[in-house]
Design a protein around this nucleic acid. Structure first.
Length: 457
RNA sequence: GUGAGUGUAGCUCAGUUGGCAGAGCACCGGGUUGUGGCCCCGGUGGUCGAGGGUUCGAGUCCCUUCACUCACCCCA
């Protein structure tokens, strides 16, 4: 039989790795509670139009990173595969897409022509839900967080996966700089609590009033230096000129490019300086960096990125900014909004780069010798668990030696040994595996004895 | 999508000008009639990523392909 392997770019998180992610998620949720953020859970699948209308058709997410789902063909296809429309690739994609989501989709009742996508980011879906619930008109000020997987069709590399978890925050109905600052303070709290060093870069992209002039200036600059720009930048210049700024190839050149800060209207300028001022008051370090542009169309004014230098090429751990026009662009009222998203795996990697992951060990291994002892041991193990102890019952079909070996391997602190001799006298052997010492304990005193041993520390 | 690197036991890796597929760790058993770790002895485990070619003979040379990794792009 051919071994079934996981899909490229997808991960299995086993044991300590999974626990590390859960730990980080629990910290993020506790943070959300302290900032009075309410949870929102939204679908994994949305209509493709949602992303086309919010992220921008020229963004990489929309133009090449989305997993498309089309009910009519019961497939998940990449945009390339849809275009190719070749039988072979279709068969291949059917074979490797028996995911639960996909099975559910087959039973869906969307129109055959409907093209859906697995969410590549959280913000558009959250905004859609916000509008759909009518909150933009009835109760516009909302403070939300979400946590869950996102999917992007990209070439995997260190810190970049096709499925990855994000913890995100979106605040609606607040146009003030204090709200932007609050987001950054929030991220800094989490960073601090986890003991991770992050580098925070901040910029302002201006607003519909002042950005056009800036955009023209960058465009003019690019055209003037067309010769010096790299190939990628030539493409960027026409599609989304601002992105030329975060080109890493021609650093010396883009350094001299026009800076957004110099083009900001008085309102945007004041907004930016207030954000910086409040961050300083709160003791959050952030660098003003005119090169922070962001790939998505919907950002205005404040935009930021937090990176962990230790992670390698994919070092952006969190990013976000203000998106005042998005609610209206998706058919809602004119409500300002601001938010961010954190990549949980990257945060985990940053944390692991600094600290060794701790391994959890069980308290007890219950060892039974013989059928009669097994019956009693099963009851004892359950009782011990109900008292809060972490207990593993070793295989009763193996020798005492092998069971103790198992107990040692899993790092159990004590072994509770129950054989026929002990059973007859209503006792068990309690063996201290660290000290290699053991004593007989009456079964009805076992729990008190163990509590006495474990609780005092 | 582009570029580079790596594929040999469950894991980490040796493998000489082409000549019987190896080590350490892990796992199982024994040394101990019911006592783990350390030690000693033994054992299980491989279509050498896959397919084709050259050759008397290929883990080794050539071609193709797949996978993984890193980087570009982009981003969490």
């Amino acid at each position: 039989m051919e071994k079934l392997k996981r899909l490229r770019g997808f991960q299995d998180y086993i044991g300590p790795q999974a626990e590390l992610l859960s730990f980080i998620e629990s910290k993020a949720r506790e943070l959300a509670r302290r900032y009075n953020l309410k949870e929102i859970r939204i679908p994994l699948v949305e209509r493709i139009e949602l992303y086309e209308r919010s992220s921008g058709e020229t963004s990489d997410i929309v133009s090449k990173q989305m997993y498309a789902v089309r009910r009519a063909r019961e497939e998940i296809l990449t945009p390339e595969e849809i275009r190719a429309n070749a039988g072979a690739t279709r068969e291949a994609s059917i074979r490797r897409n028996n995911s639960e989501e996909n099975v559910a989709l087959r039973r869906g009742d969307e129109e055959e022509s409907e093209l859906m996508v697995l969410r590549p980011e959280g913000t558009p879906g959250v905004v859609r839900a916000y509008i759909e619930a009518g909150l933009d008109r009835t109760d516009p000020e909302q403070r939300w967080f979400y946590c869950g997987p996102m999917l992007r069709y990209e070439r995997p590399q260190k810190g970049r996966f096709r499925e990855f978890y994000q913890f995100g925050v979106e605040i609606f109905g607040r146009a003030d700089a204090a709200c932007d600052a609050e987001l950054l303070i929030m991220i800094d709290d989490l960073r601090h609590e986890l003991g991770i060093e992050l580098d925070c870069q901040l910029n302002s992209l201006g607003c519909p009033v002042c950005r056009p002039a800036y955009r023209e200036a960058v465009l003019a600059f690019g055209r003037k230096h067309l010769e010096a720009l790299c190939e990628d930048c030539h493409a960027r210049l026409e599609r989304n000129p601002l992105r030329v700024l975060d080109c890493k190839n021609d650093y010396a050149l883009t350094e001299r490019a026009p800076k957004s800060v110099d083009f900001l209207c008085p309102e945007c300028k004041s907004h930016l300086s207030t954000v910086l001022e409040l961050l300083q008051c709160a003791g959050v370090k952030a660098n003003l960096n005119p090169r922070i542009v962001r790939g998505l169309d919907y950002y205005v004014r404040t935009t930021f990125e937090l990176s962990a230098p230790a992670l390698g090429a994919q070092n952006a751990v969190a990013a976000g900014g203000r998106y005042d026009g998005l609610v209206a662009a998706l058919g809602g009222a004119s409500v300002p909004a601001t938010g961010f998203a954190i990549g949980l795996e990257r945060l985990a990697m940053a944390l692991q780069a600094q600290t060794e992951p701790g391994h959890t060990r069980p308290d007890l291994a219950v060892i039974a010798l013989g059928a009669a002892a097994l019956r009693r041991a099963t009851a004892v193990a359950r009782e011990l668990r109900s008292q809060g102890f972490s207990v593993e019952q070793a295989s009763p079909e193996r020798t005492l030696k092998a069971q103790l070996k198992r107990a040692n391997r899993i790092g159990a602190r004590y072994a509770v040994i129950l054989g026929d001799d002990e059973l007859a006298r209503n006792v068990a052997l309690l063996r201290d595996l660290d000290k290699s010492a053991q004593e007989e304990v009456r079964l009805d005193e076992l729990i008190d004895k163990l509590k006495a041993v474990f609780v005092p520390n």
